[in-house]
């Protein structure tokens, strides 16, 4: 069985600053990380591999600074990593992103499962996974928290409003995986040194993939971003309540009453 895990590297949300003057994001001070739901997707892929054999391929579209994070995924147990990296890919919204990734998936070939995260913590659209499924013309299950494979069929638990549903689908299938549905493993210590020093990441450019140049990057995007605005933080009083637990309880009950104007 071959599982392709789509993995994105994102700046840690807490580290991103908004520059009021230039109205741009300042990511320079930000530490990066593997998008957390994508780590859950990778963990799910690795568990499936333990049960069914086969291989796990990491696929990512982004600049070369993504490489160390792909190596981290290799150290966790993935077998191969492909980075789609080209200046022409820059500025892509979800349409060209899903197109570019889907084209790469076709080129990798022979896959049974494509796993994504439910959404990315920076752009957080959750639109790339259904987009990929459409380009590949395969079925999709989004917001998945459990997945079992039997033969050529998948059985998935999917979160919906008010509860869940169990969905059956034939392979190949695309699924987007919920953050927190498992605990991603730590990288294997010995594998980590090999992954960092010897493992070779495959890099594909636009030319390597034969993508339609009109459909990638900012040129292929249907949406444009006019401006960024920072929502003003609601002004909060930040008043500390102190005392013994009993005294604090009295004050809290008082505040509850005040909030309802009585």
């Amino acid at each position: 069985m071959r599982t392709i895990v789509c993995m994105k590297v994102v700046p840690k949300t807490e580290d991103v600053r908004f520059d009021q003057q230039t109205r741009t994001l300042d990511r320079s001070g930000a530490e990066n990380e593997i998008n957390q739901p994508d780590k859950s997707a990778l963990e799910m892929a690795l568990q499936l591999k333990e049960g069914h054999g086969g291989d796990v391929v990491l696929l990512s579209m982004g600049p070369s600074f993504f490489e160390p994070y792909l190596r981290l995924g290799i150290a966790m147990g993935a077998d191969n990593a492909i980075l789609l990296s080209d200046r022409a890919f820059a500025g892509a919204d979800t349409y060209p992103t899903s197109y570019t990734i889907a084209t790469a998936i076709r080129k990798i070939g022979n896959f049974d499962l494509v796993l994504c995260g439910e959404e990315s913590s920076d752009a957080s659209t959750g639109q790339v996974p259904p987009g990929i499924a459409e380009w590949l013309d395969i079925p999709q299950v989004t917001y998945l928290s459990q997945l079992n494979i039997e033969g050529s069929m998948a059985r998935a638990k999917r979160t919906v409003k008010g509860g869940y549903e169990i969905v059956e689908a034939p392979l190949p299938l695309l699924a987007s995986v919920e953050l927190g549905c498992n605990s991603p493993r730590f990288p294997d210590f010995r594998r980590k040194r090999w992954a960092e020093k010897e493992f070779k990441i495959t890099v594909w450019t636009a030319a390597d993939m034969g993508v339609n140049p009109d459909k990638i990057g900012s040129k292929g995007s249907h949406t444009t971003v006019d401006e960024l605005v920072e929502l003003p933080r609601p002004s909060r009083r930040m008043q500390r309540i102190t005392g013994s637990p009993e005294e604090e309880a009295v004050l809290i009950v008082q505040k509850i009453k005040e909030a309802f104007g009585s």
Partner: peptide, 18 residues
């Protein structure tokens, strides 16, 4: 969201999220 993400690609148009 499950629907819109797929439909936008089908319709060859742009989609903004939530």
């Amino acid at each position: 969201r499950d629907l819109a993400g797929r439909l936008a690609v089908r319709l060859n148009t742009g989609l903004t999220a939530h």
